[in-house]
Computed example of a mutant assay.
Amino acid sequence: MTREVRLTPVDEQNLEPLLSVAVAEAEPDEVMPPVEAPAGWSQARRDAFREFHRANFGGLDGPTGNLMYAIVQDGDVVGMVRLGRRRAEPGTLETGMWLGKSTRGQGIGLIALRLLLAEAVQAGARRVVAETRADNLPALNLLRRCGAVLGDDTGDGHGDGTAIRAEIRLGVSEDVAGAW
């Protein structure tokens, strides 16, 4: 079965469907920064989820320097992937992704990451980095399939073994990427 997967910038129209997937199929700490709120998907966490995503509506050139995309499969929002500026590393964008539990393991993440990497090239990036846990084998496999080189989170070989940094080099000339 062929599935259509596309990325759509997160906006007011797809924010509530994105929140619905998060509540039904993910834990809060998988899909948003930590907040002081009752455990689980309390109203405070739902409000924080909305505000977190609204703060990023400005995209790469906005105040947060993040561009959030809803991952849409066959017309349904199934997760989120983001690109973010790394001001300390010129030419580098970072990414993170989550999918609802019912769509994990179906190749949707791979398609979404490849689409995101194309967006990064269009933005002039030379590389995309991601950070994940050493025990997150699905994420590590996905990153490897997209050409990532994996190392410890510090980059100096002295990490604690729990965090992994993945770096994907993109085919962008230095002249284009040096513009930012």
Rank of each mutant, 00 (worst) to 15 (best):
G96A: 15
A118L: 09
V72L: 02
S102V: 06
A88L: 14
G75M: 08
Q73Y: 06
A118S: 12
L83E: 12
T103S: 11
V77C: 09
L117Q: 04
G75Y: 09
M80H: 09
L115A: 10
R114C: 06
L67E: 15
L116R: 01
L110P: 01
M97E: 10
L67V: 13
D76T: 13
T95C: 12
A120V: 00
G79T: 06
R87Y: 07
A118W: 00
L113S: 00
G100W: 11
E119V: 08
G75V: 09
L115S: 07
P90S: 07
L99P: 02
L83A: 13
Y69L: 03
G75A: 15
A112T: 06
G96D: 11
M80A: 11
R85S: 10
L113N: 04
L93E: 01
R114W: 03
L83I: 13
M80Y: 05
Y69G: 02
E94H: 10
A120P: 02
L67H: 14
A120L: 01
Q122G: 14
L110M: 08
A120F: 02
I111N: 03
Y69A: 01
T92E: 02
E94K: 09
L99H: 03
A123H: 02
L99E: 02
Y69Q: 03
L116C: 06
M80N: 14
R86S: 13
L99R: 03
G65Y: 08
I108W: 06
R86I: 15
I108Q: 03
P90I: 08
L115N: 08
G105D: 01
M68G: 00
E89V: 15
E119D: 15
G107H: 08
M97T: 14
R82Y: 10
N66A: 13
I108L: 08
W98D: 00
V121Y: 00
V78I: 12
R82S: 11
M97A: 14
R86K: 15
A120E: 00
S102G: 08
L116Q: 06
V72K: 00
R87H: 05
L116D: 06
T103W: 13
A120R: 00
L113C: 03
A70W: 02
P90L: 09
R85Q: 13
V81K: 02
G96Q: 12
Y69N: 03
A88G: 12
V121M: 05
L115K: 04
V78L: 05
G100T: 12
L93H: 05
G105I: 04
G109K: 04
Q122I: 10
